[in-house]
Structures are given as structure tokens and as C-alpha cells.
Amino acid sequence: MKPDALRGHLDALLLATLDGRQLHGYAIIEALQQGSGGALDLPTGTVYPALRRLERAGHVVSDWSTVGGRKRRTYRLTQAGRKALHAERDAWREFTTVIDGVLGGGGKWAQT
């Protein structure tokens, strides 16, 4: 999938990846790639500024902790982050329902 198509959805993808768990940067990148079956093709370096942006918005908090013998910055969702994720999921469902109605082949456009 093209990076430009993903960029607008990166915040929501990161929120979903951190749902219910605390992860460090590379673990988030791995989880994103695994979750997409390897289809997410974004420069991995863009994940870190996006995490900072989410932290600025109060949706994520980070702590330095020792993971696997190395000091790492780990991230987790805040209450506001969980609410934002909920809103992102609702908006995505609404968006895909509308677009699928037109592009999905079952609508009036497909029959004409």
C-alpha cells in the first residue's frame, strides 16, 4: 500500500496497535506490519513523529523502561486515546459503509 494513502490514517493505526498494551517503537512497527500482512509500506521513521504527535494530543503517554536488557521508550494509550480510537473506528465504519455502497458492486451505480 502506498505511503501517501496511509499517512492520513497513521494516527488511527497507531492508536489501534496500542489498544490494551504497552509497546516500544519497533514493536509497534512490527505489530503494524504483521497486522497488515506486510502490506503497510511506510518509512518506519515516520512512526516516531506520529507517536510524539499523539503524545502531544494527550492520546498516548510514554515512559523509558528496560525491555530485553535495553532502555527503551514505551507507549500506551490514555483514557482520551481510547476515546479517540473509538471515534476513529466509528468514523471508519461509516466511511467504508458509504464507499462500499457505491464501489462495492451492489449499488445502483453498478447495476446501470
Partner: peptide
């Protein structure tokens, strides 16, 4: 995979500037 250094530096710098 991490990305071109100029592009990544630009994104990092934007966050550093906001901070």
C-alpha cells in the same frame, strides 16, 4: 526502511519545533 534522512529529519524537526 527507516526512510530518507532528509525526509525523516524534516518530520522530526517539526515535532521538535512544536515541543
Amino acid at each position: 526502511e527507516f526512510g530518507p534522512v532528509r525526509e525523516i529529519a524534516n518530520e522530526y524537526q517539526a515535532e521538535l519545533a512544536v515541543a
